[in-house]
Nucleic acid binder design. Structure first.
Length: 312
DNA sequence: GCCCAGGGTTATA
DNA sequence: TATAACCATGGG
């Protein structure tokens, strides 16, 4: 059974503005930290002393939050700083909802762990409690997908950092600078040269500006996509967008729109992970991968995410 | 210097 | 519908 977000059961503690979320089991904080720590070049959150710090844009205001868990039963969310005049219940709810989506607390992992597939068995045992960490913001998810097309992950992180630190929003706190992803408005106002200057290819610059413009013109939104009903329709909508192919569409379905069956089949990371866990000499063919994935039906996104952890 | 990287579009058959 | 060529850039 899924665990829908329910603001009425949220428990806030004063005066430190801390929220305790009883997380659905199984949940493992450590494997999630492991995923979030995979790049030392990440710019959109920081892991420090086993707490995750993240800057959230909420309307015109910013909230810096710290998340941690000591027992894998309760997730603590502390509002470190809020730029607005008062922490209304609406703001608190937005923050709680973001964390809920970010950690994919809606999903019940039990059926996934019950899948009888030899490959899944390996990775679910190795990363028990890992949840498919999301990218709740659609523009960020699509941008990160586009940035990651056909380049190695290290360079992708570098490009993202340049984009964020040039056009994003920041907050100084406790001697640290925290960054939030640029808004579509900011990116839509750029020229392709603004991005090629940061070593984006001409294509990536064009795609990013295109997506930003669709969003600022109201022709593309997370709410609008989710309202189309089924995931197949959402995928078709995404595929109509220039620069969004099958891999990126499924990446966005997986990390943002939360289709557990989204499957970025062309993902090189997935290919290399399968090569590794199966002890192959070469990367498996697409036909082989389709065959292997027959045992993952309904959970392809989670299978892919867990397999990524084998390599990085 | 070479192959590779969390692909997509366009041209061609 | 299916396959090939081209794209452009840094990492290792």
């Amino acid at each position: 059974m899924p665990n829908p977000f329910n603001p009425s059961v949220l428990k806030w503690h004063e005066p430190t503005s801390t929220l305790s979320i009883a997380v659905p089991q199984p949940f493992g904080y450590e494997p999630n930290i492991g995923y979030l720590s995979r790049s030392t070049n990440e710019c959109l959150f920081a892991v420090d002393n086993s707490s995750i710090y993240k800057l959230l844009p909420l309307g015109d205001n910013l909230a810096l939050i710290a998340v941690n868990s000591e027992d894998d039963l309760v997730l603590h969310v502390r509002i470190v700083h809020y730029s607005g005049t008062s922490l209304t219940s609406e703001v608190r709810e937005d923050i709680a909802r973001y964390v809920w989506e970010w950690f994919d607390l809606e999903t019940d992992l039990a059926p996934f762990y019950a899948m009888e597939d030899p490959i899944l068995r390996q990775v679910t045992e190795a990363f028990r409690g890992l949840r498919l960490m999301g990218i709740p913001d659609l523009f960020e998810a699509m941008s990160w997908g586009i940035i990651g097309q056909q380049i190695n992950l290290a360079f992708a992180y570098t490009l993202k950092r340049r984009l964020v630190e040039t056009f994003g929003t920041s907050l100084e706190w406790g001697g640290q600078t925290y960054w939030a992803f640029p808004t579509p408005e900011r990116i839509a106002a750029l020229t392709p040269e603004d991005l090629t200057l940061l070593q984006f290819t001409g294509k990536k610059a064009e795609y990013l500006l295109g997506v930003a413009k669709l969003m600022t013109q109201g022709e593309l939104s997370k709410k609008g996509l989710l309202a189309t009903g089924d995931f197949a329709a959402m995928e078709q909508e995404l595929l109509r967008i220039r620069g969004i192919g099958p891999w990126t569409a499924n990446y966005v379905l997986m990390r943002c729109l939360r289709n557990p069956a989204a499957f970025p089949l062309a993902d090189v990371g997935l290919h290399n992970a399968l090569k590794h866990v199966l002890g192959l000499d070469a990367k498996p063919s697409l036909a082989q991968i389709r065959q292997l994935a027959e045992g993952w039906q309904g959970w392809e996104a989670y299978a892919t995410f867990y397999l990524w952890r084998v390599l990085y």
